[in-house]
Write a protein that binds this DNA or RNA. Structure first.
Length: 474
RNA sequence: GUCCCCAUCGUCUAGAGGCCUAGGACGCCAGCCUUUCACGUUGGUAACACGGGUUCGAAUCCCGUUGGGGACGCCA
């Protein structure tokens, strides 16, 4: 039977990096086995769920290229079904009404802790006569969990994990207001959605034991579990929403490519020999949850950067210019003029080789976007000494008559430096001030390439701007 | 506190008893290339947490210690 996986985020926050990886693994597992990958939004907490978060999750998934199959299931829409199952459990004597107050509950927890017992509900209403129910208290429905024996799950990642039933208390399946709890809804939904493989974060491992009890009580087949280790921050602590894990949109905004993020996330906790750069096709072909390691990995931006740089270099120039334009319009700045796009396109091959992220690329591309008067940074100004300006003046005369292909520009400059200047200069002695004068910076793509792309008029204009003493160092 | 899980270079990992003098990648350092920066390229730095077993032989198996992480809500 083809597996059915699901990604089930709760829209109480945005899609963060850990969730993205969980989604990736579910996606890859389904695709690898020719199965189905479904999406369920767990929005049962009405207080904390927001439509913005839902949109962000869907957008994040789409951006990452993790397309799900079939309709999105909203858990909130299924509350009636969850209630029905809870009531059936109650009727079958596998659940019971509990009238314990929140105060009693905290007391129980504290006492259990003090006595070295597992904290939790003590089962005081488990076998009590409902006739003793206090008046005016709306009860919750608790699952009558087995007290003897143990629960075992054969986790695809964690292996066989066992827990004694006495560690598990009688969980609430229906709140006093009649709404179903997460623990209960998940089981009902996973069953109803025919989920065969539950791949999720390791923080759910202990939930799996309680959920297993529920499956058994209902007589439902238990899905295969795979609890993947969490992603930790650089400090080794859990990378949760509250510890500032970045929303997936932030990665996009900072200029990461979805393919780079996918590759990075895939390699976090999973490997395939010495392979580092893994295409989507290879990922689908090679991935198996069973190969996911058990130890949590730390998130490393530097490695992500290098992967991103790799994929950036591999992108075709047109798509990068389009991306650049999209970033601009997203900021409300309007697109590029024809001249600008033409220049960017011409210079992109060199530009992309020098960037790690889209935001790097963006600032580097200002050479081709800036209008006169361009700004000169401190280091550029420092290069434009009186001597240097003297050389540039000499060079300018030759440039006037020079062809404007990059090779010709280099030949002209070399000729000036090595033959005309007195005493002769090394090419760099002229090329560096030239770069500063043309680009306003000490670093740039190859200067003759920049000049060719910028064109004769722009270059001469910038050169004159410097030569006229509008830029000089003290 | 109770329970569960984990442990190879700084980081991500390869490694399923001899192939390991522990491999790759990122980072870092140095050389080469070079008009700058980058790319590329060559070389280098750097790890089996510790202690006991088992075995002819252990990074790999077992036990313990230490260290780390996670779960214990009428949140999901």
């Amino acid at each position: 039977m083809a597996p059915v996986t699901r990604f089930a985020p709760s829209p109480t926050g945005f899609l963060h990096i850990g969730g993205a990886r969980t989604a990736l693994f579910n996606y890859l597992f389904a695709r690898h086995h020719g199965g189905v990958f479904r999406l369920r939004i767990e929005d049962t907490d009405k207080q904390r769920s927001t439509p913005e978060a839902i949109d962000a999750i869907l957008a994040g998934l789409r951006w990452l290229g993790l397309d799900w199959d079939e309709e999105v299931v909203f858990q909130s829409a299924r509350a009636e079904r969850h209630r029905e199952v809870a009531l059936a459990l109650l009727k079958a004597g596998k659940a019971y009404r509990c009238y314990a107050t929140p105060e009693e509950l905290t007391q129980m927890r504290e006492r259990a802790r003090a006595e070295g017992r597992p904290p939790g509900y003590d089962g005081r209403w488990r076998d009590r006569d409902p006739a003793e129910a206090p008046a005016g208290v709306q009860p919750v429905i608790r699952f009558k969990a087995p007290r003897e024996g143990e629960q075992a799950i054969d986790d695809l990642v964690q292996g066989k994990v066992t827990v004694a039933n006495r560690q598990l208390d009688d969980m609430i399946i229906l709140r006093s207001d009649g709404s179903p709890t997460y623990m209960h809804s998940v089981v009902v939904d996973d069953h109803d959605m025919d989920i065969t493989h539950v791949i999720r974060g390791d923080d759910h491992l202990t939930n799996a034991f309680r959920q297993r009890q529920l499956y058994d009580a209902m007589g439902w087949p238990v899905p295969v579990f795979a609890h993947i280790p969490l992603i930790h921050g650089a400090d080794g602590a859990k990378m949760s929403k509250r510890h500032g894990a970045l929303a997936i949109g932030a990665y996009r905004d900072e200029g990461y490519l979805p393919e780079a993020l996918r590759n990075y996330l895939l390699r976090l906790g999973w490997g395939h020999g010495d392979e580092e750069i893994i295409s989507d096709e290879q990922a689908v072909e090679w991935f198996d949850v069973a190969d996911v390691g058990k130890n949590p990995a730390r998130f490393d931006f530097v490695k992500l950067d290098s992967l991103n740089a790799h994929y950036l270099r591999g992108r075709d120039d047109e798509s990068i210019v389009a991306l650049l334009a999209a970033r601009r319009t997203a900021r409300g700045e309007g697109g590029f003029s024809d001249t600008q796009s033409k220049r960017l396109l011409a210079g992109m091959a060199s530009l992309k080789q020098r960037a790690k992220r889209m935001d790097d690329l963006e600032s580097a591309s200002s050479v081709y976007l800036a209008e006169m008067p361009i700004t000169y940074n401190e280091q550029a100004v420092k290069l434009l000494t009186a001597d240097a300006l003297g050389h540039l003046a000499g060079l300018r005369a030759l440039l006037e008559a020079s062809g404007w292909e990059r090779e010709e520009l280099e030949a002209t400059t070399r000729q000036f430096a090595e033959e005309i200047a007195d005493p002769p200069l090394k090419l760099g002695k002229v090329a560096q001030p030239l770069r500063a004068a043309i680009t306003g910076s000490k670093v740039s793509p190859p200067i003759f390439e920049v000049m060719e792309i910028l064109g004769r008029n722009s270059c001469l204009e910038r050169l004159d701007f410097c030569l006229n003493g509008q830029v000089f160092s003290k």
